[in-house]
Design a binder for these strands. Structure first.
Lengths: 157, 157
DNA sequence: TCGCTTTTTAGAATTATTCAAAAAACCCGC
DNA sequence: GCGGGTTTTTTGAATAATTCTAAAAAGCGA
């Protein structure tokens, strides 16, 4: 096991991976979505798509990027997440509270929200398949959000 | 058909109903929830519970109260709605966007959200009955929110 | 009515997010 | 590789929804 070992080398790692094979895949993904592969977009896409399904807020993602010395502003995180949503790379999830959550899994599925730890997670099975929903006349369904709010037994009382 | 006919008489109506039979029922409801029946709480409960199921934001409710010359501040509307939620008189609904919605129907049911007109409505049948949800070990389910987002055909394109 | 507690209020503070304009980065043809 | 037009990013201000704070008002029991 190896630690990162200091500011400089972390910076190099954060910078260097942008030339690697992972970065090439991400560039392709961005290009397919007609988004110019800028440093910042590649960095953020890296964080989002490297490790399976993720659920993050803009603030969280920004902190993560900073911890890895990826130079980008909070505004860019917000902009980029919005663009990624618009391009269908990720999706928004409506949760209680004032914060918007982003989910890298764009398929049809539902969420648990842990109110104590403020964490969002996928529900393994797709519950929405069981729902028989019809749009009222004159309307079209643009999305279905199911969120199951949880409290862990300690927090509960 | 009769109009309200001017500021004064609207003010009297808004004030006077607080002595009537409706107000008595609302007082009882507040008392049952261990909330002191202040003018403001009675006024707001009146707006919320007189006319069947309602879906409102704090801002909307405040405007409504002002239009009826009920004297109360926006902060009170926010406080009161939070207390009503805590007492189980109403419930919150998680919707996209930064605004919290309140629903006077506390039973298990789902919602349509009209994104064009920004309006929330109950879905007649209770879809959640079809959902087979289990809490992960160590957790308890404190609520299930299903919101079906709609666009009307004009707004759509 | 008096006095104690709860509630309300106005306005400041906070939080999450968006906006606007300037600076920087990207990309194309040469 | 280099200028020039376009796209992105950035900083800081602006906004929107909500909460907080301390003081004033209202409610309530003796």
């Amino acid at each position: 096991m190896e630690t990162f070992g200091g500011e400089k080398s972390r910076a190099r790692i954060a910078y260097d991976w942008r030339g690697g094979p992972l970065a090439r895949m991400i560039r392709q993904r961005l290009q397919a979505a007609r988004l110019r592969p800028s440093r910042q977009r590649i960095s953020l896409a890296g964080l989002l798509f490297v490790a399976g399904d993720r659920h993050v807020t803009a603030e969280q993602l920004h902190r993560e990027a900073q911890a890895l010395d990826m130079p980008l502003s909070l505004a860019t995180v917000y902009n980029t997440l919005r663009q990624f949503v618009a391009s269908g790379l990720i999706r928004e999830v409506a949760v209680f509270g004032s914060t918007v959550w982003y989910d890298t899994n764009t398929g049809s599925h539902c969420h648990y929200f842990d109110e104590g730890r403020q964490r969002l997670e996928d529900i393994p099975s797709d519950l929405t398949r069981d729902l028989k929903i019809a749009a009222p006349p004159g309307y079209r369904i643009v999305g279905v959000d199911v969120i199951v709010r949880l409290r862990d037994d300690e927090t509960l009382q």
